[in-house]
Design a protein around this nucleic acid. Structure first.
Lengths: 341, 341
DNA sequence: TTGTACGCGTTATCAA
DNA sequence: TTGATAACGCGTACAA
């Protein structure tokens, strides 16, 4: 068993007959240390494989150079891209990223927050668990001046920066697009209304109908967890109706794809008999035949901005805390699944 | 600006007229502390929102309770599931996960290793960058008894645990399946041979041809980065041939899907005129029409096992270092894209 | 230009 | 059952 103790600046100091502080400074190119000494120290360090202990430095500096991330799941297209962006932004400033999953569960989310706080992350990026209604587990960050940035799934109840898209507008745009394509009876497969983003998408849908003098039929609005399975179940209900919809606005692409598959299985023609639009622009939206119209969702940019926002906040030490809300642009990606004319 | 200093055990000690060590022990339910005292301390801590400083504990204990992860990219289906599994396994043992991306770039990979070592992670899970040929940046971990576990993409040059699938066998199985479906002229769209896994898949392909007395035609073997774009380009070459293949074994599903799309665009019938099989069982494989045959790749299990393996290694302190190689089962998922009879 | 001494917050050892 | 003290490795004010 290898019990080689890791080399520290003390060891180097002893060996080089210098003081630890000189070593510490030399390694950081401190101006006060002579060039010769600096080189000698660095040379020795390199040769003997000195590796700084970040933990000790963190404790001393009260800076961990780490950003914490709390997301519902990591293995979803949108979120893995979000994380990729966060990692990118963090790395640019030499920050590390600790990720944790809430599995869309409140208790887990609290545990994640506790753990990240214990790790003394310097900031957190959060995408809320779907049913979180109490937010006091985030107070500890605010109380310690650790910036929180919400990405995508957010809440108004915490005074923190938010990066999001305009879900209302996107829902409106998607629905209006279906109307423009001649749909008269448009359904909505939405997410659980616990989450603001799904409420907003639905409100946009409703508003588009209203503005176009189309009736709002509660039976045409179904909420679920937006998984493929639930997409099938919910589209079953819609497609089984005597008077079935001629257009469906789905709150994500997973459900949009399921809907198309379900329609195809039943011999319902997409888009002629049923126009479908999804949300997110996941890879699958381009694989399904016909390609699924959708709303672009700039996940990676969102992650990048979130990381940058966290780091920017750290700088600030004003007496007034003002929060920023960054709204990223989305685009309607009209593809075959909804284009009728 | 909120300059509230964070509560420490010293503060509690002063307040409660006890010693810091008593506070520390009480908070950990140490047997030597009286029940009354313990409760008093915990009560005070809870009431005043004491939050332990994990950094200090890490320094003192020489244990960070953190696993580092180095992967080429996080936003790919296989890898995001791998990470999900790692996170799961880590959380079970109260470990955190720091992720870093190499972007399939050697220099980045070295930087990731340096950073993780500085963070004093207690173990690392690595999926190698595609072109890494020098592995000395991992030596620091071995020298400090920090376990390395390779997941999926590995090397023989480092004496460490590996979790993988049998790529040779999988390649063999996939190819044999095409042969059984009556294919006579089978191509291979493979990954860069720098990576062992792609070499193995190709070897399996070659062996299957050999065993079935089919000729090996070098022109039918193309290597690329396995992106959708490259999949199109490479399948263009194959489908443009005078004597074009009647079956293609693709080294991932991205390329498999591109191949199907390309064939459909050209009016080539899948699977009748061209049977296609991919690799990984990504979500897209079930979305494309016809559904893409593929090889299952248990990403999440792999991640879970990797985390568990890291934690298991930490325990061991034997004088002999033996490494384990864990091979996960894959399955042939024969779907429409390759079933001809 | 270099060295001394202390503190970051926690825990383990030893003593009381 | 509790307390005093040292130590983890580093960085920095202050002294030399």
């Amino acid at each position: 068993m290898n019990n080689k103790k890791v080399l520290t600046i003390y060891d180097i100091a002893t060996e080089l007959k210098l003081s630890p502080s000189t070593i510490s400074r030399a390694l950081q190119d401190h101006y006060s240390i002579g060039k010769k000494t600096t080189e000698k120290v660095k040379g020795y360090a390199a040769k003997h494989g000195y590796k700084p202990n970040g933990v000790a430095a963190s404790l001393r500096n009260n800076k961990t150079k780490t950003i914490g991330v709390i997301v519902p799941w990591v293995n979803r297209p949108f979120i893995s891209s979000l994380i990729s962006g966060i990692e990118l932004g963090a790395t640019e400033s030499n920050y590390n990223v600790i990720i944790s999953q809430s599995h869309d569960n409140y208790d887990n989310e609290v545990a994640c927050a506790t753990s990240l706080f214990s790790s003394r992350v310097e900031g957190v990026v959060v995408s809320l668990s779907v049913k979180t209604k109490d937010f006091s587990h985030f107070d500890r960050f605010l109380n310690s001046n650790i910036p929180i940035v919400f990405a995508d799934r957010w809440t108004e109840e915490i005074h923190a920066d938010k990066i999001m898209i305009d879900n209302f507008k996107a829902g409106f745009t998607a629905t209006e697009h279906l109307i423009q394509q001649g749909c008269k009876r448009i359904a909505h497969l939405g997410g659980l209304l616990d989450q603001k983003i799904y409420r907003e998408r639905q409100l946009g849908y409703v508003e588009a109908l209203k503005q176009n003098n189309l009736p709002i039929d509660e039976r045409l609005i179904i909420h679920n967890l937006l998984s493929a399975e639930e997409g099938f179940k919910s589209s079953d209900i819609l497609l089984d109706m005597d008077e079935r919809p001629d257009g469906i606005f789905c709150a994500n692409d997973t459900v949009g794809v399921s809907t198309i598959q379900n329609a195809k299985k039943r011999g319902i023609k997409v888009p002629e008999e049923l126009a479908v639009i999804g949300f997110n622009n996941d890879p699958i939206s381009l694989i399904i035949d016909p390609p699924l119209s959708t709303i672009s969702h700039p996940a990676k940019e969102m992650g990048l901005l979130a990381a940058e926002q966290v780091l920017k906040r750290k700088e600030g030490s004003e007496s007034v805390i003002r929060t920023e809300t960054i709204i990223l642009k989305t685009e309607l990606l009209a593809r075959e699944s909804s284009i009728r004319r």
